[in-house]
């Protein structure tokens, strides 16, 4: 059985979302199966419409303009593109959190196609019990 990694993507700031995509890339490079549970502010960033503009976490605020300009200048892909690339390399499943999706009245069709399914916390925890699990 492959080693497993699980990520809870709670934050919706660009820096943390990128961190999640980069860690997931490292995991598939190491032949791990990855499950990503996207919830709260993370979930608001995978909606097809009404997605808030990219932000940075609190400690990144001072560098915000500089960082976004550098990313553009150096052609650094956004986190969804990065995650899609990693998905081509290995086994990554992206799950939307059922509770938060219900709260926002959102269905799978309202989310970016990167989302494989909408599941509840019970199912996610149960599939993660032998995983290296990170909360981002």
């Amino acid at each position: 059985m492959a080693d497993k990694m699980s990520l809870v993507v709670f934050s919706g700031t660009e820096d943390k979302l990128m961190a999640a995509s980069i860690i997931a890339s490292g995991a598939v490079a190491n032949d791990m199966d990855v499950s990503i549970f996207v919830t709260f502010w993370g979930l608001t960033k995978i909606l097809k419409t009404g997605k808030p503009a990219p932000e940075l976490s609190f400690e990144g605020q001072k560098m915000k303009d500089q960082l976004f300009a550098l990313m553009k200048q150096k052609n650094i892909p956004d986190w969804i593109t990065m995650l899609n690339n990693a998905k081509e390399v290995g086994n990554i499943k992206v799950y939307g959190c059922a509770m938060f999706a219900d709260m926002l009245n959102m269905k799978k069709e309202d989310m970016d196609p990167i989302v494989d399914d909408i599941i509840g916390v019970n199912e996610f925890v149960s599939m993660s019990k032998d995983s290296m699990t990170l909360f981002i």
Binding site: I22, S25, G26, V28, A29, K74, N75, I76, P77, M82, N85, A86, E88, V89, G90
Partner: peptide
């Protein structure tokens, strides 16, 4: 060339596969 971590490694693994 011109892409950043983890881009090049992902490209390599894709080519390897």
């Amino acid at each position: 060339r011109g892409t950043f971590c983890p881009g090049p490694l992902m490209e390599l693994i894709k080519a390897y596969k």
